[in-house]
Write a protein that binds this DNA or RNA. Structure first.
Lengths: 232, 232
DNA sequence: AGTCTAAGGCTACGGGTGTACACCTAATAA
DNA sequence: TTATTAGGTGTACACCCGTAGCCTTAGACT
């Protein structure tokens, strides 16, 4: 009821020090503890970036979009609630952008892992698969947010889905090359669903006696793509 | 989460007319004849069953526990908000019970499918896998609720996990028998994660050009367990 | 010096939530 | 017929949420 004062509350421990005793603002009301410096004329987009960063952090903690509130983001950045609203027409828009950045990170990690593995397709796809599972295990919140049932508006959801499709396409191409079989497309889908299941179930059932991740992924690639284990 | 409206879902109007007077609508003993009949003396547990049923319906619509509020359940049953509280000390308790009933249904369906497939282990496990994927595809809300990251208190979560472990154990035993290999335990886990990934990704990415479910599951079983397709 | 405007803040409204506590009422046992 | 009690109801509290409308500030340009 009546929202009650909305004091800065120092929710996040990371409020910037802001050593400016200046304070000539003469707030008529409360003391107004050290406000965040306003961006320069042309740098309106800077706050936008900070908002996205904060939202990325918050969403990563649980992966549940319901936990990412406009107010929580504003609190984290240290701005007024409505200031988020200046850069994102709706919360869904922000959420979609955050998820896309996750996919960008994810895809880059997988590409890097594959490239580091060398040229042989079998080795590359194995490395990519392992990187997939590892990234998912290490970023459960992000992964969950990326691959959960769509709660967003249709267009925002499509944007996220497109980012995900790109990551899958890279893996599919590599898997197809490694398998070299007519039904390789289906095999690539198998690999994707199996990796996704691995990540997702491990997160959901941490108590289950899971085998070593490397062993599991290795075995999956071997069985699904027919690629023999690495032969140095 | 005031208005996280599921726009794309569309379909039926999700806001039922709700002919009941609002619970704050100061209706003294004037009329109010439309009240739900009270249970008989010994039948106090009857309401409990109705509450679970209502919660099952509600949770199934989205699978998101955040959408299952105490108030929504009470509204659905047609009782006062706090009456739910008579039978369940906390909302988590109700949620856990609902999820366990989902697992009971799920497990029974899988067992029935396997039994209907006959005696040969390879055929049985194939039927069970297909039933798994089908049930998941047909009950996306339930499935999501059953297998999502734990949001419940530890003991409630453990109860749900135990119910899930039982279902997996049945599949594992059958898969091990069908594969008849020393590493069959790992293969059973592969099958589980792959099936889970299939269900979960199809729900999360309905637009993706998925292959026919039967073809996909058949191919998975063949590749993962080394069981050849059915030979009549 | 004056003005314009981008950047951001404040307050409020109307809604949602779980849960504690006091109260009522009808079916039964005496 | 009356007392008891199982089976509920009503109200309230404290806390969340998105967002609409209006206000303030300061950098940049005349």
């Amino acid at each position: 009821m009546a929202d009650r004062a909305e004091v800065p509350q120092a929710g996040g421990a990371d409020t910037t020090p802001d050593p400016r005793p200046d304070e000539h603002a003469r707030r008529p009301r409360s003391g107004a503890p050290s406000r965040r410096p306003r961006a320069r004329r042309g740098e309106g987009a800077r706050l936008r970036g900070e908002v996205v960063e904060a939202a990325r952090r918050l969403l990563a903690t649980t992966g549940d979009p319901a936990d990412l509130s406009l107010r929580a983001v504003a609190r984290e950045v240290g701005i007024a609630t409505t200031s988020v609203y200046l850069h994102f027409a709706t919360l869904d828009e922000l959420l979609a952008e955050v998820k896309v950045t996750y996919f960008t990170d994810f895809g880059a990690t997988l590409d890097a892992a594959a490239d580091a593995a060398g040229d042989r397709p079998g080795v590359r796809v194995r490395a990519r698969g392992l990187a997939y599972a590892r990234w998912g295990a290490e970023h459960p919140g992000e992964y969950r947010a990326m691959f959960e049932a769509p709660t967003l508006a249709a267009d925002a959801a499509a944007q996220v889905a497109r980012a995900g499709a790109e990551v899958f396409a890279a893996m599919r191409d590599e898997a197809v090359e490694a398998a070299g079989r007519p039904d390789a497309d289906l095999l690539a889908i198998h690999l994707w669903t199996a990796l996704h299941g691995t990540v997702s179930l491990r997160t959901a059932r941490p108590q289950f006696p899971w085998p070593d991740l490397t062993v599991e992924v290795d075995s999956l690639v071997t069985h699904l793509l027919g690629v023999p284990p690495a032969t140095p």
